[in-house]
């Protein structure tokens, strides 16, 4: 009944201005397969326009793909938002776009934002400035994503910037999040020692991959299926589901 899935829930594509041009659907899926990952999430900055292409590229590969986005809240906190369907993530994207400033991306400064198809071919350029804060608060992001049936995981909380812990000091007590993410090179015990305020929160470790070699980071989910509801249960350690971070840190070559 249960599957054990190695997962990387934080992967950028060429839509993210800071991602390498190699971050196209077929190469992401090939890399995920090579690493034995059973589950990935596509989480570009404040946009989901390449999600459907990665899902299409994953067909028949054995890699499950969750639609997602990495949101930048008003407090400059990065949050992984994960969903089950493309419809859900596009509904969320519409809300997010309405809360981004109406500014154009400067591709020379930030990098280009490419929308591609399942083969990685160029479709169009997203001209909107994505590397910027929405005017949604942390709480508003969590409430809205939950209402759409999604899941929120604060990203790279142990990094020096765009981190919930660095920017806001601690997790607000009633925030409806099941877990926090630590950086790809971080060890759980060391992060727990450094940030005792994270006691009680489950950790995942993700690649925050902006290039193929950064995919991995090795978090294992014991779930009945790769769905948001199952991940939520696993992150809360309920109904026999659970999550575990690999003891070793993969070398990123």
């Amino acid at each position: 009944m249960f599957q054990y899935l190695w997962a990387d829930l934080h992967i950028h594509t060429v839509l993210s201005p800071c991602a390498e041009v190699e971050m196209i659907p077929p190469l992401i899926i090939r890399r995920a397969r090579d690493l034995g990952l059973g589950l990935i999430a596509v989480t570009d900055h404040n946009s989901a326009e390449n999600v459907a292409a990665v899902i299409e590229a994953a067909e028949g590969s054995g890699v499950a793909v969750l639609p997602g986005m990495e949101i930048q809240s008003r407090e400059e906190v990065h949050l992984l938002t994960l969903f089950d369907t493309v419809e859900q993530v596009l509904a969320w994207q519409a809300e997010v776009y309405a809360h981004l400033p109406d500014l154009k991306n400067d591709a020379d400064y930030f990098g280009a934002q490419f929308v591609v198809d399942a083969t990685g071919e160029y479709v169009r350029t997203n001209e909107r400035l994505l590397s910027v804060s929405t005017d949604l608060s942390l709480e508003e992001v969590v409430t809205r994503v939950r209402a759409l049936g999604g899941l929120v995981i604060p990203a790279h909380v142990d990094r020096p910037s765009f981190s919930l812990i660095v920017n806001l000091g601690f997790v607000p007590p009633d925030l409806d999040i099941p877990a926090v993410e630590i950086f790809r090179f971080s060890r759980e015990e060391e992060v727990r020692q450094r940030f005792p305020q994270l006691r009680g929160y489950t950790f995942i470790r993700s690649g925050d991959a902006h290039r193929l070699s950064e995919i991995g980071a090795r978090t294992m989910f014991k779930v009945a299926a790769p769905t948001v509801r199952e991940l939520d249960l696993a992150l809360r350690g309920e109904q026999g589901r659970r999550v575990e971070i690999a003891k070793t840190i993969a070398s990123f070559k």
Binding site: E75, S137, L138, N167, L168, G169, F170, P172
Partner: peptide, 10 residues
């Protein structure tokens, strides 16, 4: 310019 409720706790 941070106005999140956490400022009060801090």
């Amino acid at each position: 310019l941070q106005s999140h409720p956490n400022i009060v706790a801090v």
